[in-house]
Structures are given as C-alpha cells and as structure tokens.
Lab assay of single mutants.
Amino acid sequence: FDIYVVTADYLPLGAEQDAITLREGQYVEVLDAAHPLRWLVRTKPTKSSPSRQGWVSPAYLDRRL
C-alpha cells in the first residue's frame, strides 16, 4: 500500500459515515483511492492506539516516497 502523511488535522463532519479523525504528521496507508473525494486509509498502530481504518479527504494527504 502507498504511504501518505497527513498535512493538517482532519476532523470529519458528523454526517460522514466511516470517517476517522487524523492528526497532522500522522502516517497512513491508502487502501482505496478509486473515489476522487474520499479515500479509504488505515492508520499505523502506536503503543497507545491500535490501527484504525476509515474514509478521509485526499486533500489532507501528501504522498511519501
């Protein structure tokens, strides 16, 4: 999967189903980028939180090589 970094805090609107909150600087794996406005991502697990999966706007993501 492609690795992206979150460029700004992402707080989903209440109406968005299956969306997750992301923090600036967080790394995520993009699982599904087929839709231009919503990408399915999975967060990297940390010592304090397990990995999470949900939909985010790709405008908040920047690809890492």
Results as ranks from 00 to 15, higher is better:
residue 16 E to L: 08
residue 19 A to S: 12
residue 12 P to C: 07
residue 41 V to G: 00
residue 13 L to R: 11
residue 12 P to L: 08
residue 63 R to Q: 11
residue 17 Q to C: 12
residue 28 V to S: 00
residue 14 G to T: 12
residue 19 A to N: 09
residue 7 T to H: 05
residue 52 R to V: 15
residue 30 V to Y: 01
residue 1 F to N: 09
residue 11 L to S: 12
residue 58 P to L: 02
residue 36 P to T: 07
residue 32 D to L: 07
residue 53 Q to G: 03
residue 27 Y to L: 15
residue 1 F to M: 09
residue 13 L to A: 12
residue 57 S to C: 09
residue 8 A to F: 07
residue 38 R to K: 10
residue 29 E to R: 06
residue 4 Y to K: 01
residue 14 G to D: 15
residue 64 R to A: 15
residue 58 P to M: 03
residue 36 P to S: 08
residue 49 S to D: 13
residue 64 R to H: 15
residue 60 Y to F: 11
residue 18 D to P: 06
residue 45 P to K: 08
residue 13 L to D: 15
residue 51 S to K: 04
residue 2 D to R: 09
residue 46 T to V: 05
residue 23 R to L: 13
residue 14 G to S: 13
residue 36 P to I: 05
residue 65 L to D: 14
residue 16 E to T: 08
residue 3 I to G: 04
residue 60 Y to A: 05
residue 62 D to P: 02
residue 17 Q to N: 11
residue 8 A to R: 14
residue 64 R to C: 15
residue 65 L to E: 14
residue 48 S to V: 10
residue 24 E to H: 10
residue 59 A to S: 11
residue 56 V to M: 05
residue 49 S to T: 12
residue 29 E to Q: 09
residue 20 I to G: 03
residue 37 L to K: 09
residue 44 K to E: 10
residue 29 E to A: 05
residue 48 S to C: 14
residue 59 A to I: 12
residue 51 S to N: 03
residue 49 S to L: 12
residue 54 G to W: 05
residue 40 L to N: 02
residue 46 T to E: 10
residue 56 V to C: 07
residue 59 A to T: 11
residue 12 P to V: 08
residue 21 T to F: 13
residue 56 V to F: 03
residue 45 P to W: 06
residue 9 D to L: 04
residue 21 T to P: 14
residue 42 R to H: 02
residue 21 T to W: 14
residue 10 Y to F: 10
residue 2 D to N: 10
residue 17 Q to E: 14
residue 44 K to I: 15
residue 52 R to I: 15
residue 61 L to V: 03
residue 25 G to F: 03
residue 3 I to T: 08
residue 4 Y to Q: 02
residue 8 A to N: 07
residue 8 A to K: 15
residue 16 E to M: 09
residue 30 V to L: 09
residue 56 V to Q: 01
residue 61 L to K: 00
residue 18 D to Y: 07
residue 47 K to H: 12
residue 46 T to G: 07
residue 11 L to P: 15
residue 29 E to L: 09
residue 60 Y to T: 03
residue 41 V to D: 00
residue 58 P to S: 08
residue 16 E to G: 11
residue 36 P to A: 08
residue 17 Q to L: 12
residue 54 G to R: 02
residue 53 Q to K: 09
residue 34 A to Y: 08
residue 32 D to T: 04
residue 52 R to L: 14
residue 57 S to H: 10
residue 65 L to Y: 13
residue 3 I to L: 11
residue 40 L to K: 04
residue 14 G to W: 12
residue 30 V to D: 00
residue 42 R to A: 06
residue 4 Y to H: 03
residue 3 I to H: 05
residue 26 Q to M: 12
residue 42 R to M: 05
residue 63 R to W: 10
residue 5 V to K: 06
residue 65 L to G: 14
residue 47 K to C: 14
residue 37 L to Q: 10
residue 39 W to T: 00
residue 17 Q to K: 14
residue 33 A to G: 09
residue 26 Q to F: 03
residue 1 F to I: 08
residue 35 H to D: 15
residue 53 Q to H: 07
residue 58 P to V: 05
residue 58 P to H: 03
residue 52 R to S: 10
residue 48 S to I: 10
residue 11 L to C: 14
residue 5 V to T: 04
residue 48 S to H: 14
residue 22 L to W: 03
residue 8 A to T: 09
residue 45 P to I: 05
residue 63 R to Y: 13
residue 7 T to L: 12
residue 35 H to S: 15
residue 20 I to A: 03
residue 55 W to P: 01
residue 5 V to Y: 13
residue 61 L to S: 00
residue 12 P to T: 07
residue 58 P to C: 06
residue 28 V to F: 02
residue 61 L to T: 01
residue 55 W to H: 03
residue 43 T to D: 02
residue 22 L to V: 05
residue 39 W to E: 01
residue 33 A to H: 08
residue 59 A to E: 13
residue 54 G to C: 05
residue 25 G to L: 02
residue 34 A to C: 13
residue 27 Y to W: 12
residue 31 L to W: 02
residue 36 P to F: 04
residue 10 Y to P: 02
residue 1 F to G: 10
residue 2 D to P: 15
residue 46 T to P: 03
residue 6 V to C: 12
residue 4 Y to T: 02
residue 41 V to L: 01
residue 18 D to M: 07
residue 9 D to W: 03
residue 53 Q to V: 14
residue 18 D to C: 11
residue 58 P to Y: 02
residue 64 R to L: 15
residue 3 I to S: 05
residue 6 V to F: 01
residue 34 A to L: 09
residue 25 G to R: 02
residue 56 V to K: 00
residue 40 L to M: 05
residue 24 E to N: 07
residue 41 V to F: 01
residue 65 L to N: 12
residue 10 Y to E: 03
residue 7 T to Y: 03
residue 31 L to K: 02
residue 39 W to L: 01
residue 29 E to P: 00
residue 6 V to H: 00
residue 32 D to M: 06
residue 22 L to F: 04
residue 19 A to E: 11
residue 4 Y to S: 02
residue 21 T to I: 13
residue 35 H to P: 03
residue 49 S to C: 14
residue 49 S to A: 11
residue 10 Y to Q: 03
residue 43 T to A: 04
residue 34 A to F: 09
residue 59 A to W: 06
residue 24 E to Q: 15
residue 57 S to Y: 04
residue 2 D to S: 09
residue 8 A to D: 05
residue 58 P to F: 02
residue 38 R to I: 06
residue 63 R to S: 09
residue 50 P to D: 08
residue 46 T to H: 07
residue 25 G to W: 02
residue 12 P to N: 07
residue 40 L to T: 00
residue 29 E to N: 04
residue 36 P to C: 06
residue 54 G to N: 02
residue 57 S to M: 04
residue 18 D to I: 04
residue 16 E to W: 09
residue 56 V to H: 01
residue 38 R to G: 03
residue 2 D to A: 13
residue 56 V to I: 10
residue 10 Y to V: 10
residue 18 D to V: 04
residue 42 R to E: 04
residue 13 L to Y: 10
residue 42 R to K: 08
residue 26 Q to C: 07
residue 39 W to Y: 03
residue 19 A to G: 14
residue 39 W to I: 01
residue 9 D to S: 06
residue 27 Y to F: 12
residue 22 L to Y: 01
residue 53 Q to C: 12
residue 9 D to F: 04
residue 32 D to H: 06
residue 9 D to P: 05
residue 11 L to Y: 15
residue 2 D to T: 09
